[in-house]
């Protein structure tokens, strides 16, 4: 962006769109376990992510960002996938806490907990912690904003296609629902 005169700014369309997206990351109001409490706290008056343009939305179709806050069981995983599919593009995913990253405290001794939500949906930012403090969540969101800033709506996209590396059946719970990489 360049300031030419007092009140005139010239920029590229893509940069302008990215700037807008970066500052209005509406997130899906979605929490499955104790990490959700920290997510709510982050949205509360003390940490107030509203000042970053992050407003919780009640439906996936209005959301840009899914913060997976909490334990995901095998039963829940297909619902998470459905919610993610309902989000409009471009969509972003933050995996919050050890459970969503890798199964966390349940990864070894639980039969039903999914060891990492990235087996079902592609994750942009992982935030460690059990639970991560609101500061850590905000830090993760700032890292995501770097990524959003580099996203190009019209030009070359700085983002991986929707493939989860390392899994032969990445979206195995949804036979027939696999979709082409859309970008």
């Amino acid at each position: 962006m360049k300031a030419a005169e007092d009140s005139i700014v010239t920029t590229a369309v893509d940069e302008f769109l990215a700037w807008g997206k970066e500052h209005s990351l509406f997130y899906l109001l979605f929490a499955t376990a104790c990490c959700g409490i920290e997510l709510m706290q982050t949205g509360g008056p003390r940490y107030d992510v509203d000042r970053l343009g992050m407003i919780p939305r009640a439906t996936p179709r209005q959301s840009d960002l899914m913060i997976v806050a909490g334990t995901i069981t095998h039963k829940m995983a297909s619902r998470v996938r459905t919610l993610w599919e309902q989000m409009t593009e471009p969509r972003w995913v933050v995996s919050m806490g050890s459970c969503a990253n890798s199964g966390g405290p349940f990864s070894k001794w639980s039969y039903s907990v999914l060891n990492g939500v990235d087996k079902y949906i592609p994750v942009d930012v992982y935030i460690p912690g059990c639970p991560p403090r609101p500061e850590a969540l905000i830090d993760g969101v700032m890292a995501l904003r770097e990524r959003v800033r580099r996203y190009r709506t019209l030009g070359i996209r700085d983002r991986d296609p929707y493939v989860v590396a390392g899994h032969e059946a990445p979206f195995g719970s949804h036979p027939g629902k696999e979709r082409e990489a859309t970008r």
Binding site: H74, A77, S78, S102, G103, S107, L114, N115, G116, K119, Y120, H167, A169, G172, S173
Partner: peptide, 8 residues
């Protein structure tokens, strides 16, 4: 489960 391996 449903083709998604349990272990990472």
């Amino acid at each position: 489960y449903h083709g998604v391996p349990h272990a990472r």
